[in-house]
C-alpha cells in the first residue's frame, strides 16, 4: 500500500513538475491546508455536537436537538456564540506568553498529522523518523499548558499547569516506551513502513495488527494515551470540581476556542497514532482507506468519552504513583520482552 506523499500526488494530478522546489512548496501548503481542514472538520463535529450527544447517550439524556437535523447546526450556533464573546485579559497576565499558549496548544497537535498515513495516498510527508516526530509534536502541547498556567496569574491556573507537567512527565515515558516496542516489531520509525508491516495475515483472515500481535502493549498505550490527552480518569490538569478549570480558567472567547480545539485535536492525534501503530492504519475491507482511518480515530474518541462518563478521577499523587511505579515498569518489561521475542524469532 505504499503510495506517494500527498504533495507529489497533487502535483501529478495538476500536471505540474514534481521535481521543481517551488511547485513542491506550493503543493505542500495546499496539502497541509487540506489535511488541516479535514481534521478541523472532525474536531468541529466532535466538540460542540458529538461530545454532547455521546455523553447524553451515556447519561440517559437527549442533548442538543433543537437546531437543524439531529441538532447539528449547534456547531454554527456555538461558533458564533463563542467567537462573539468578550475576550477578558486577566490583570497581571504575562502577555506574550499568555497569548501564545492557546496557539501552541492548538497548532502543535495539528502538526502531528503531517506524517500520519490516512489511506488513499493522503499523507503529507513520510520521513524516516516519522514516529519520533509524531511523539515530539504531541508532547509539545505540555509547553503550551505550562505557559497558559503560569502566565494567567491565577492560582488555579498555576496549579493546573503544575499538574499538567507532572502528569505528562509521568505518562510520556511509558507512552513512548510502549510505542518503541512497535518500532522493534516493524524495524522502522517510518510511518508507512509501520503500516505496511501490519498488512500480513496473523491467523486466517485476522491481520497482524499490533493490537492483535501484542494486546498487552495496546492496552498500556491506550491507558497512557488517556493521560496524555487528559481525559477521565486522568483529567487532572483541568479537574473542574477541584481547581475550577485548571490552566484554562482565565481564557475566554477566541482563546478559549483555541484551547478547547487544541484539546480535541489532541484526542484525535492520539487516536491517529493508535490507529497507525496498533490498528493497521487505514487498512480495512470494502471501504476506502480514509474512511477506515476516520472510523478508527472516532472509535478512540468514543472510548475517551466513555471513560469520561463512567470512571472517577484519580488523585494527582495516585496518578504519579501509577505512572512511575506501575506503567513505567510494565512498559519497560514489555519493551524488553518484545526485544527478546523479536531477537529470537527473526
Amino acid at each position: 500500500m505504499q503510495s506517494a506523499p500527498l504533495p507529489e500526488t497533487l502535483a501529478n494530478l495538476l500536471g505540474l513538475d514534481p521535481n521543481s522546489t517551488a511547485v513542491m512548496i506550493v503543493m505542500s501548503l495546499i496539502g497541509a491546508g487540506l489535511i488541516g481542514t479535514l481534521m478541523m472538520t472532525n474536531t468541529a463535529l466532535a466538540g460542540p455536537w458529538a461530545k454532547r450527544k455521546i455523553t447524553a447517550a451515556f447519561t440517559d439524556r437527549i442533548a442538543v436537538d433543537r437546531i437543524g437535523p439531529y441538532g447539528l447546526f449547534i456547531i454554527v450556533a456555538d461558533a458564533v456564540r463563542l467567537l462573539s464573546k468578550e475576550l477578558i485579559v486577566p490583570e497581571g497576565a504575562d502577555r506574550p506568553a499568555w497569548d501564545l499558549a492557546p496557539l501552541i496548544i492548538a497548532s502543535t497537535a495539528l502538526l502531528g498529522f503531517a506524517v500520519i498515513p490516512m489511506g488513499n495516498g493522503i499523507q503529507l510527508a513520510d520521513p524516516e523518523v516519522g514516529l519520533a516526530y509524531v511523539f515530539a509534536t504531541a508532547s509539545m502541547a505540555s509547553v503550551g499548558l505550562v505557559m497558559a498556567g503560569y502566565a494567567s496569574n491565577n492560582k488555579y491556573s498555576f496549579l493546573g499547569g503544575l499538574r499538567a507537567v507532572a502528569q505528562n512527565l509521568a505518562y510520556e515515558i511509558p507512552l513512548i516506551l510502549t510505542g518503541a516496542s512497535v518500532v522493534i516489531f516493524a524495524g522502522s520509525l517510518q510511518m508507512s513502513e509501520i503500516v505496511a508491516a501490519q498488512q500480513q495475515s496473523l491467523i486466517g483472515p485476522l491481520p497482524s495488527w499490533y493490537a492483535f500481535v501484542n494486546p498487552f502493549a495496546f492496552v498500556l498505550f491506550l491507558i497512557a494515551n488517556l493521560a496524555e490527552v487528559g481525559r477521565n480518569p486522568f483529567d487532572i490538569p483541568e479537574a473542574p470540581t477541584e481547581i475550577v478549570a485548571g490552566y484554562q480558567t482565565e481564557y475566554s472567547s477566541v482563546y478559549f476556542v483555541l484551547v478547547y480545539l487544541g484539546e480535541f485535536i489532541h484526542i484525535f492525534l492520539g487516536g491517529a497514532i493508535i490507529a497507525t501503530i496498533f490498528l493497521g492504519g487505514p487498512a480495512g475491507p470494502v471501504l476506502p482507506g480514509i474512511v477506515w482511518f476516520l472510523i478508527k480515530i472516532w472509535g478512540v474518541f468514543l472510548f475517551t468519552q466513555w471513560a469520561r462518563s463512567a470512571v472517577p478521577r484519580v488523585r494527582i499523587d495516585q496518578l504519579i504513583e501509577i505512572g512511575w511505579k506501575g506503567m513505567l515498569v510494565l512498559s519497560l518489561a514489555n519493551l524488553l520482552l518484545t526485544a527478546v521475542i523479536v531477537g529470537v524469532t527473526v
Binding site: 455523553t55 451515556f58 447519561t59 440517559d60 439524556r61 477521565n232 483529567d235 479537574a239 473542574p240 470540581t241 477541584e242 469520561r308 462518563s309 463512567a310 470512571v311 472517577p312 478521577r313
Partner: peptide, 18 residues
C-alpha cells in the same frame, strides 16, 4: 458526591437525579 469525585456531570449524577 459522585459529581465531586468523578469530576464532571457523569452518568452517576444523572442516575441519582433520575
Amino acid at each position: 458526591f459522585a459529581l465531586d469525585v468523578f469530576g464532571d456531570f457523569t452518568a452517576v449524577f444523572q442516575y441519582g437525579i433520575r
